[in-house]
Design a protein around this nucleic acid. Structure first.
Length: 196
DNA sequence: AGTGAGATGGCCT
DNA sequence: GGCCATCTCACTA
């Protein structure tokens, strides 16, 4: 499958967040093997005018530098001192916006016969994605638009809109009314979506 | 099944 | 010093 290009990532952030559902996140391991996962849950962060976004009010800091790159780069930051979260930067340098990846479905996943264990559902949360794919600050700012990178996203067929559920974002209660904005998207009935 | 605390560090005022 | 775009485990019942 072809990679998603600059044109794709430059679009409206909310649109990109929806379109990313079902697309294939690819991670090249140290040995050259490529781990592939399907994106099943995302959240849009609308930059300058979004109180929940790190770039709210145009705050340019060391941490948010990658958000000011063109669309199609990774923004990875540390949270709670021990986890990392992976975002896809959208739009252009004047619009520091991004899509948080909240959950992916490992493509070699096999439905267990009995009860699923925690280790069989390893990437159903933003911190768990980075733990699963071993992503850290080292990968912050990397391009997602070339296979020469260690991280990229391949295209896949767009999902029908009835398979997409829209909801409030998680963990942003501090952001006032913005906490209620419908900017979280996930694939209906997908087993790998993060739990409430 | 539901609640609560602790881990742990960088960023921001 | 306080607050996080989180996760896990221990505790109640």
């Amino acid at each position: 499958m072809p990679l998603l290009t600059q044109d794709f990532y430059s679009q409206d952030t909310k649109k990109v967040a929806k379109l990313l559902l079902g697309k294939i996140l690819c991670r090249r391991e140290a040995e050259g093997h490529v781990t592939k996962s399907r994106i099943v849950e995302t959240e849009a962060y609308l930059g300058l005018k979004d109180p929940a976004a790190h770039t709210f009010g145009d705050r340019r800091t060391q941490r948010t530098k990658a958000m000011y790159l063109d669309g199609g780069h990774a923004y990875i930051y540390m949270i709670y001192g021990m986890y990392f979260c992976l975002n896809v930067v959208t739009r252009t340098t004047e619009h520091p916006e991004a899509v948080l990846l909240r959950a992916v479905e490992p493509l070699d996943f096999v439905m267990p016969r009995k009860k699923p264990s925690k280790t069989q559902l390893p990437a159903n949360g933003p911190g768990k994605i980075c733990r699963y794919l071993e992503l850290t600050k080292n990968e912050d700012g990397l391009s997602l638009m070339t296979k020469k990178s260690v991280l990229w996203i391949e295209n896949a067929e767009d999902l029908p809109s009835k398979e997409i559920v829209t909801a409030k974002r998680i963990g942003v209660d501090y952001a006032g009314d913005a906490a209620n904005w419908p900017l979280r998207f996930y694939i209906r009935d997908n087993l790998h979506v993060s739990k409430k």
